[in-house]
Structures are given as C-alpha cells and as structure tokens.
Design a protein around this nucleic acid. Structure first.
Lengths: 383, 383
DNA sequence: TTGAAAGCGCTAACAC
DNA sequence: GTGTTAGCGCTTTCAA
C-alpha cells in the first residue's frame, strides 16, 4: 500500500469525501497535494518550505503537483501553528474623528511607503489600524509587532500592546514613559538650530516662528529649540501659534505674524502648509520674498520647488525613518540584536531654495547633521 | 465533579500542565478562562461572542473573568476555524521599482484613508500589498477580499486572485476583461467635457492638453474625450504628452506646450503636478494667468488654493471612491447584494478658482455630474 | 441550558 | 529520507 493509497482511506480524506470530495470543498489542501504526489503531507510541507533533507527530485515533483493543483497554503493554519503571522500593525495617533491624520500627507505617505517597502523586503506586510482603543479590532488580527507613529502621552493602545508582549517601535520618541522596544526620531533641536543659523547667515535680524499649540514632541522640541536659540543670540522671540492640523487657523496665524508691529524679517513655519500660507500673507502685505522676508518651512512636499519663489524646506526624511523603524521592529520580532531599547536619532535635510537666500540663489544643497547616537543593529538604506 | 474540575484533568490542560502550566505558556487561552470561570470552553466562546442562549449572569461572569485574566482570543485560530480573517488587501499597480505609486500622493492617500476608515467601520482592516506577483507574500496572509487600484491590462495578480475565488473590487475600470466582482470609477469623459466647456465659456479659443503617454484607462478616456470635444467644436487639438509619473518630463512638456507657435490660450493638465509646472512655464514666457492663459489641472492637492493665482482643479473625489469600493467589496464578501458585477460611476468636482476665470473670480463652486448608472447595494457616505 | 468532541490546515517532533 | 501523530486555539454541531 503506497502512501497515496493509504491516504485514500485516512481520516481526513474520508471526512472530506463524505462532504463530496475535495473539489467541492474549494481549494486544494496539503492532503490533496500529498495524495496526488504520492507522498505524505510532511514531505509536501518540507518540499514547499525548503526544509528537511529531501532529494531534489521529490522536492521538484511535489512543487510541480502543488502548482498543477493550484495549491495555496492556508495562511491562517500556518499562523496558528507557528505563532507568526508576518503581519505588522501600522497606526497613527488620531487628531480628529477620522482614524488617521493625513494632515501631513506627504510625510505620512512617504513614511508609510518606505515602511511598507522595507517590510515587504523582509517578508512582512503592513496592516493599517486605528489608534483607538477598540480592542475588538486590534485583537481580530494576529500581529507580530506594531509601528506607532507619533505616540501620544501614555497612549492606551501602545500601553496595551506592550503589555500583551507585542514588540512596538515608534516613529517619534514617546512622550511619557511608554515602554516601546525602540524608537526612531529626527534630531529636531539640531535641525531648528541649523536652520535658524542658516537664516541668520542670510541676513535675518529678527526670525519669527509659526508653531502649533499641540504638545506633541515634535512641536515641543522645535519650539524649545527656537527659544533657546533666541536666548543665545539675544533676539526677542516673535512667534504665533495655532491648533496644529487646523489649516485655516494656520493661515490666520501666518497673517497675524506678519501683521505684528515687531514684524519678523524671516519666518520658520513648523508645519507643511505654512509655506504657502506665509507666502500668501507676505503677498497681501506687499512683502517680497526673499528681499523683505526670508522663508523656511518644514515640509516633504515638492510643490515648494516650483512656488514663486521656491521655498526652502526642512525635510524630515520620512522614507529613511519608515525604513529604519521597520528594520528595528523586525529585528525585535525575530530576536536579532540586543534586548535593550534602541533609540535612533536621524538627521534632517535642509533643502535651500530662493526664499532663504538674499545673495546668490543656488538651487539646492543639503546640510546634514550628525548621524545619531545609538546605531541600530540593522543597515537601513537611504530613502 | 464540576466542569472546571473535570477540565483540570482534561487532555489539553494536562499537556499544558506538563509544559509548566498556563502561566508560562504566555497569554491566557480560552481554556484558562473556562477553568477560572468554572464553565466549559463552549460557554466562554458563546458568552464572549454573544451567541447561544446563556443567562445574563453566566455571560457577565465569564466576561469578567476573561477581562481579569487579560484574555485575548487568538485571531489566527478564529480565522482558521471560521474561514474569515477580517482582512482586506489593498494594492496599487506599480509604475517603478517601488511597490507603490505615490506619484499621485494626495489621491492615493485620501483614497486609502477613506477606504481604511470605511473598512474599519465594518470590522475589517486593510493590508497593504505589492502588485508584484510574488505568491509567497500574497499567500502568506489570509484575505477575505482585495481592493485593486488602477489595475493594469490583464493584471496577473488580479487574475490570480479572482481565479482563487477571492472577491476583488477595483478602483478604476479594468482595462481588459479582468473578471472583478465590481469596479468603481469616475466619469472621466464627462468630467473632461464639462471642464473644456467651462474653459470655453471663460473665453478660451484654443485649449491645449498636457497628457501622459501611458495607456491606463484614466489617461486614455480623458485624452479621447479631449479629441472628441475638439472635433465637435471644430478646434485643432494642441497637446503634448510625456511619460506619466515622470515629474521632470512633465515640466519639460509643460514648457514645450507653451513654446509652440500655435500656443494655446488655455490648458488642461491631466496630472497633479501639471498645475505648478504650467504656472512656472507661463511665468517664464511672461504669460499672465488667467489674462493670457487659462489653467485647469486634475489634482486633489489643496496647494492650488493658495498658488498665485489659485488654480482651478478637477477633483476625482478619491475619498468617495475609496469608501464605495470598500462597501462593494464587503458586500461581496458577506454575500450581500446580487452576484452580477456592479459598475459604479462616480461624479467629479470642478473646483473653480481664479486661473480659469477671465471675468469675476468667484471663489469655489462645484459642477457635479450625473450620479452614475448602476447604483450599488450600499449607501456610501460622501467624503 | 451546558458540555464533549470533532476538526479548521498546517508544522514539527519523533518514529521507522 | 519519509511517514505518523499530536496538537496550535478556537467554533460548532450534537448529545446530555
């Protein structure tokens, strides 16, 4: 009696048969392949997964039969058995009622693109999940780990995830004492210092800041760095703030900043839309850029390359961050690298355009910073 | 002997115990909850899933115990058992080597946001997957269905998915004869006609087109509609095309279009960056917008509201599309609605700004079209 | 009303 | 080398 023949009367096959045979039960299973190839299911499993020490002949024969039968292994069964799903959660802290903040469109999109790409390269896929604490959703999907973008103070979702033993890596340093396995962030303070220095070198005497009222780390660090810089060079701070992620409020604040009696002769806008808003405001007040007003804003958008005039932007390099976050997370999942939490600080790029140059307007140059303090175990590519 | 006591000596518990007890084996399982609550695992399952006819007392008691033990049902096991994962694949046709095309950032981001949101509302999560035919990735995740954005001709991935019996709904009508369960698309031809009429009404005598060389449906339909319109009004077509999704080529083509001897007095750009490119080109040739040149481009980006001058855009309403696609897909997954493929055509919005108005520049108005031919079974909200 | 038992499809020990 | 077997943790008949 061959293996295949034995299989004919085996329990599983019988129950299948009772229900009308494998054709009616939908897709072919590993048993069908085994039967058709005349081997056992173990051999099929090993052949398809490249395990065991099978002769190449068997391996290729099984593969061929599986192919012919259109066999697709069940991801659910594999996950249940191995405890690994190959799925990574991706979540963004919510600011509104929608499950995602795409206010910073370009940043998020690029970060997500890079993360997805990096994960895929290592055999993982990303699942987009909301930052709400709705357990049912999170527990309905088997995750190997999670990436959290901009975790808020003591984020309940993150806390819960970490407590359940799931590796969590965050984009942006966690505000409180969230016990994430690792985090990646830009050196925001250094970035602001560098950019203010750049403006000062271009001739700015009084640099203003357009910032948000929100207390997230990015806003806080950047604003603090601005005040520190002002204190150091002996300039009185000139700033306006508004509820971040409220575009209209941003436009109004931009206008307010340029309407002040102590009008700044240079402005740095912390958020993506600030550039166009400030440009529009400058136009209303008849201020020429860069002659009367120097402008820099933090943005990943390429539109600032073609505005009139082109605007100098600070890029946070979201692609690089997304990639790094994923490498760190997968390393943690697979137990590569140490157990100690990794904190990786990434440099930013100042893309210098006309709006911040009074003299000779070169086109584009970058002013990278030091590459960070705690090099991770991986080798993140650039983005 | 109570159920709980019997459970103590049951097979599963024993094997667990042999490995050192449930505490060491990680998270609490349904058996632990059953034991702690003094009921059977069936009762736990029913109590937690709101099934069966249990007294409320039992139900709440079980829930409480589960809560206390920090019990989280295993998604993998449930998926294996029920055949439903609650996961929906999201894929975008690739144009480059990267797994995603975010060239049309704003469109994709907004579409994905809306889709994610809609899916979540119905208890599903989205998994981002590459359009490559790498089987290993697709078969590593248990999907209930898939959304395909911009399926290309006879897309092998889509074909494969459909053949495996998975419901597939596409954003953008499939070019060939891909047997998707449903598709959603804009009425591109009507959109172009409406927009050209609008330009003509604003005084345009010769309207140019900036378009792509790619053969995707959007480009094809829009370009054809342009030629048809020209034929109807008796205008000679004036157009330049370039490899879509190549930003630099777009800028060059924009320049070329305005450098022609038969220079158009109005231009429609099919792709997002065309607006700023055309504006830059106009500036180089000393053309005032809208006085010398009327401008419209297809874009979801809000930057066109603050350019100088603000540019009229055609919005494809990606949010609405993302939502509809998901409703259709989940309906198909859950067997709601008929079996016949649904083709839903969605209206576009023309957001009229200064760049297309020679007379009184009102701020913003929409020119919606007919709501489509085959109303789907769902009730997609607006976005 | 509640419980026992049978698997969902696969992988990994461990026999042969 | 290859096959047998025992579950992964859950849902779901079916019996009590």
């Amino acid at each position: 009696m061959t293996a295949a023949e034995k299989h004919q009367v085996s329990r599983a096959s019988a129950s299948r048969r009772a229900r009308g045979g494998s054709r009616l039960s939908g897709r072919a299973g590993i048993r069908d392949v085994a039967a058709a190839a005349g081997v056992s299911i173990t051999t099929v499993s090993d052949a398809l997964n490249g395990k065991g020490r099978l002769p190449d002949a068997t391996r290729s024969h099984v593969r061929e039969v599986a192919q012919r039968l259109g066999y697709r292994p069940s991801a659910a069964a594999r996950t249940l058995r191995t405890g690994k799903s190959g799925l990574i959660g991706l979540t963004v802290t919510t600011y509104g009622e929608e499950p995602f903040t795409f206010t910073e469109f370009a940043y998020f999109a690029e970060m997500a693109r890079a993360a997805t790409s990096a994960a895929l390269a290592r055999g993982y896929a990303l699942v987009i999940l909301p930052a709400t604490s709705r357990h049912d959703l999170w527990s309905n999907v088997a995750l190997d780990g999670t990436v959290v973008i901009d975790p808020s103070d003591e984020d309940p979702v993150v806390t819960e995830l970490v407590r359940s033993g799931l590796p969590v890596v965050s984009d942006g340093r966690p505000s409180g004492s969230l016990p994430v396995a690792a985090w990646v962030d830009n050196d925001h303070e250094e970035a602001v210092r560098g950019l203010l220095d750049h403006l000062a070198e271009a001739g700015a005497r009084r640099i203003g800041l357009l910032t948000g009222t929100s207390t997230d780390t990015y806003t806080r660090l950047s604003t603090t760095a601005y005040f520190d810089w002002c204190a150091r060079v002996g300039q009185e701070p000139v700033y306006e703030h508004y509820p971040a992620h409220d575009h209209c409020a941003g436009a109004v604040a931009a206008d307010r900043l340029l309407a002040r009696p102590d009008r700044p002769d240079a402005v740095y806008g912390l958020f993506d839309p600030n550039g166009t808003d400030l440009l529009a405001a400058a136009r209303r007040y008849g201020l020429r850029v860069p002659e009367d007003l120097l402008l820099v804003c933090c943005s990943e958008s390429s539109v600032y390359a073609t505005t009139e005039p082109p605007i100098t932007t600070l890029s946070l390099k979201p692609g690089r961050i997304g990639n790094t976050v994923i490498q760190l997370l997968i390393d943690a999942i697979e137990g590569i690298g140490g157990d100690a939490p990794v904190h990786q600080v990434m440099p930013t790029d100042l893309i210098i355009r006309t709006s911040s140059q009074r003299r000779s307007p070169r086109t584009t140059v970058s002013a990278p910073r030091s590459p960070g303090n705690a090099p991770g175990p991986s080798d993140p590519a650039d983005a």
